[in-house]
Design a protein around this nucleic acid. Structure first.
Lengths: 275, 275
DNA sequence: TAGTGGTCTAGACCACCGT
DNA sequence: CGGTGGTCTAGACCACTAA
């Protein structure tokens, strides 16, 4: 691209050069990244589909391939997009096995035969190394309690969906989930549809409701099992449970799920890596 | 660099081109990265010091600046090195505030005034938002129990150091740590030296023993407080505690610490982000 | 064989830092 | 001001994939 057009675009995009204490200009590749991000968010390219080639994007935005490349690099680093040499760059989807268990941090304790206590499940293995089956206990619509509304950035009293489900790992009751979703985005979600669905919940959200979870923040606590939860999880009342409170979000940090998972950690643990 | 010298270096580095089913050649920038890694590991450049400039490294290794850049990019992404525009690239150190609390995931519950339940402590804040004080209960040398030896990749019975300490958050007993270290790397570590040290433990390990923690894997469980720990933490026996079992490592994934932290999560939680 | 992403180069210029 | 990292370009070539 030539000097003139570059300056022109920059002037178009920015809001202030010397005007005020406004934000300084973002590098070109970040501007491109934002444009691509908008394409993802708007559904111009859907999960599983390929986005245009780097060369095509470079031509479209009138920048060099290297600049497009750096923009895509960041999207790939954020797991929003997956590069495949020789094939193209694809919008990430919960369909893919690698991404499948990205949000599931629960692992069985004895992972690998005589392996060290902290060996990852298996080299390069993404799966949890266990068979997880889900049983929906309840699914109903109600008005958001205040803390749920706050977490989902809704007004108190707005419609939400509450799902309660029991996860069994290798046949043993292990996680009791209480999932809150904004009613507006999940119209038509019901216990029947949940029962009919076989596969990861986030894949259902993606394909059936067009809501793609791309990240989450979690808060973990140890709590004592109350009567009801103890019964459901088949543990003694007062047993220690690992409470995982998760708020997950789509594009633009927009929260779309509040989940409280009560986990029995007798034979399982929550796995995390610090770098 | 010219074709001839590039081919030459590649032939030197690799082990097999068409010979056997050996590993395929790594890209140049990865080879450079490994060379830099060796420099870090060997202590050629020490924590806090600057490594040579990109231009100098490019000349030394006879590659382009862009290739060196990509190598350093990966080291920076792994937090092994910190780039500072206009100044240089520095070996990461636990001295820096940003890195200071990288391994501390415990946060006070009510973070920010009326903020949403899941707002990070503060925008860009690395600190824990609380005053943490440490009290060493015990520090002694003994022979490694088998599971400790396994976690630290030692032979059973080798010398290890056991540290027990109590962390108080804003004056309240909150975490009871049991820390196991390989004796060979931590000669001369004693309760007195620990008491005399003020600052993060990992900084002490780095400056006093030349052991730099660069990463860790953690396993979390909810457990019931036994008699002793309940007393130390001033909670009721049987109270749920968050057990954080951490194995941290230095360069080359070499484990150098096994830590079990028993956390009271009445007013605190373990924070995590999933991307 | 054509098209895609992946690597590598060389050089220009910018933004920032310390002196 | 000189030196550092940061951005951007243009073009060559490689590695992989699919038709």
């Amino acid at each position: 691209m030539n000097e003139a057009s570059r300056s022109a675009r920059r002037d178009d995009d920015g809001t202030a050069s010397g005007a005020g204490a406004g934000p300084t200009f973002a590098p070109l590749y970040r501007q491109i990244r934002e444009l691509l991000l908008r394409g993802l968010q708007s559904g111009e390219w859907k999960p599983g589909e390929a986005i245009p080639s780097e060369i095509e994007l470079a031509a479209r935005y009138r920048v060099s391939q290297g600049t497009v490349r750096k923009a895509i690099d960041e999207l790939a680093a954020a797991n929003l997009v997956v590069r495949r040499q020789g094939r193209g760059t694809f919008v990430a989807s919960h369909r893919e096995v690698r991404t499948q268990f990205r949000f599931l941090r629960l692992r069985p304790d004895d992972t690998g035969a005589g392996a060290g206590a902290h060996a990852p499940t298996r080299a390069g293995e993404a799966g949890p190394g266990m068979v997880m089956t889900s049983r929906v206990l309840e699914c109903r619509r109600l008005r958001a309690p205040s803390e749920v509304a706050r977490a989902l950035a809704l007004r108190a009293g707005e419609a939400v969906v509450l799902i309660r489900r029991l996860l069994e790992a290798d046949g043993e009751p292990t996680v009791l989930d209480e999932i809150w979703l904004p009613g507006s985005r999940f119209r038509g979600l019901s216990a029947e549809r949940l029962d009919a669905w076989h596969g990861p919940l986030y894949l259902m959200f993606e394909t059936e409701f067009g809501v793609r979870m791309i990240g989450a923040t979690e808060r973990l606590k140890a709590v004592a099992a109350d009567r009801g939860r103890a019964r459901t999880l088949q543990v003694a009342e007062g047993s220690p449970l690992l409470l995982v409170e998760r708020v997950s979000h789509t594009y633009g940090e927009q929260p779309v799920e509040l989940r409280r998972g009560y986990c029995v950690t007798q034979r399982h643990h929550y796995y995390n890596e610090l770098g």
